[in-house]
Design a protein around this nucleic acid. Sequence first.
DNA 1: CAGGTATTGTAATTCCCATTACAAAATTTG
DNA 2: CAAATTTTGTAATGGGAATTACAATACCTG
Lengths: 298, 298
Amino acid sequence: MTSAKAKGKKKHASSRRRLSIAEEINRNLDNLTRTERQCARVLLSNYPFIGLEKVASFAERAEVSAPTILRLVGKLGYSGYSEFQQHLRDELEERFQTPLTKHEEPLGNTQSDDFLAEYCRCVERNLSRTVKALPRAEFEAVLLLLADPKRTLHLAGGKLTSTLADYFYRHLIMLRANVRRIDNDSYAWSEHLVDLDRRDVVLIFDVRRYQPELMDFARLSSERGASVVLFTDQWLSPVSSVASHVIPVRIDVPSSWDSAVSTMMIVEAMIAALSNRNWAMVERRVKAREKLTDSLHS
Amino acid sequence: MTSAKAKGKKKHASSRRRLSIAEEINRNLDNLTRTERQCARVLLSNYPFIGLEKVASFAERAEVSAPTILRLVGKLGYSGYSEFQQHLRDELEERFQTPLTKHEEPLGNTQSDDFLAEYCRCVERNLSRTVKALPRAEFEAVLLLLADPKRTLHLAGGKLTSTLADYFYRHLIMLRANVRRIDNDSYAWSEHLVDLDRRDVVLIFDVRRYQPELMDFARLSSERGASVVLFTDQWLSPVSSVASHVIPVRIDVPSSWDSAVSTMMIVEAMIAALSNRNWAMVERRVKAREKLTDSLHS
DNA sequence: CAGGTATTGTAATTCCCATTACAAAATTTG
DNA sequence: CAAATTTTGTAATGGGAATTACAATACCTG
């Protein structure tokens, strides 16, 4: 049973309908009466926003009465205004979120076009959306945790994301002491958990196809008083419910798999900010480390 | 009882408020309680669509109770959920009205204090430069190697870049057979080298602070007839002299360390291209793999 | 132009859903 | 560790918005 979680996507309560409402309207524009057509036109003219308002506003804008709107909605095949609106919202979200998502139909032509450039464009869009949506306060708060030498940091990730945890880890150990990489196999977890207290910070990477084990680990960490920092996608891993800080990133690309690029960018930015701010300390550490490396190899 | 009549006229009832709700949330994220913050995060992470749903849906998605949503809305300064939604709708519509200018208008705070945005900009520049400079023929040639099931792939990386090798590896094993991860410590290398022949492909990640060991490994591989594919920075690792294919990427960021984001983007694009082209085969493999996983866990 | 039909708005009704009151739970504090 | 305070969910309530019934109006059609 892999699909335990239902929360992922509740989408499309009534997804039997595949046509967009705009198309639907165009198809039976003739079956409509004069005022109904008027409503339809008003809706289409700045689709779909008026449809999201209350019936009364829609009616006023179309200069008709409320029941006319309802009749139109009925003729379009909806059982009520709510259902109609729900469909509009789903449509809008789908269009807005990812006009290019997962492995659907239009892949035949990838060869001919410049796939790489296309992929890059998606990644860039992910980056700017991520940066735009990320609360700076959250970013700063995490930086504060990372910069505090009295706190021990623990990094964990899922099947694919553990790579990111690893990337973060390798940089952090250059910047400071007390950084631990949490092994991917969950048998060793109790070793980590037993020592956790409110001084500790647990950084978890978890994107969709969320891994239940990570949730367990996060919960236990949080119960022991540790601060949990979560790096996740825009739909938020369940871990977010116990996390003290959440960094959501965009992961949409025209691929069967998700992109980790945005996450990596945030991780790098954190490392950069951290080392820029405490450069004196970091430099001392790097120097000492190099000296030790030399001693070992000579 | 009190007359909230003023809104009778449909003109933007609360247009005095100029801050977007997203900004508003970011500002008083600290005044919020834990569950309220959770709601706020859920809203921000795919803004603003959940806010357009009914309270119940929003609450369910955020895994809190309806009143919590209402309290959040209250704290943000709205007299009710309707007013809140109205504002979201207005915002959304306004954003849509100006589709072109929207890209970078709110840069009131940029240069000076927004380090994250600055970092992101550098990364984006790296990405486009990388894509622009990369010979498509080289990209394609590597894809051909990766797609050939008769060839065995070996992945190796340096101190920091081995993370990328790892990321690549974890995806490749989902796509095809005969993929090997070369351990980071050089004592085990001879094990790999001894079996190499002209059928084999060695993928090496090496960016500046180039590691001499990697050069050794590359040379030996090449001497045994293997194809060497190199991912490196714009200044080219010495490995390039023995490589049959070189993928150079940009790594400049305002940090003491280099950025691996561009490299990761290329890696992901290769994986995406690969699985898009051979989807039938890949799908079979993924299915079979899932079945096995289930068998193991049951 | 009269009678019939289709269309539309007004006004009453119903029902959903935001709201609120209150109790339980969690957290903080002495 | 108990009391106080804050936070949160449950369940009841009220208001407002969707819906419906019906009358008024427009539109045919002979």
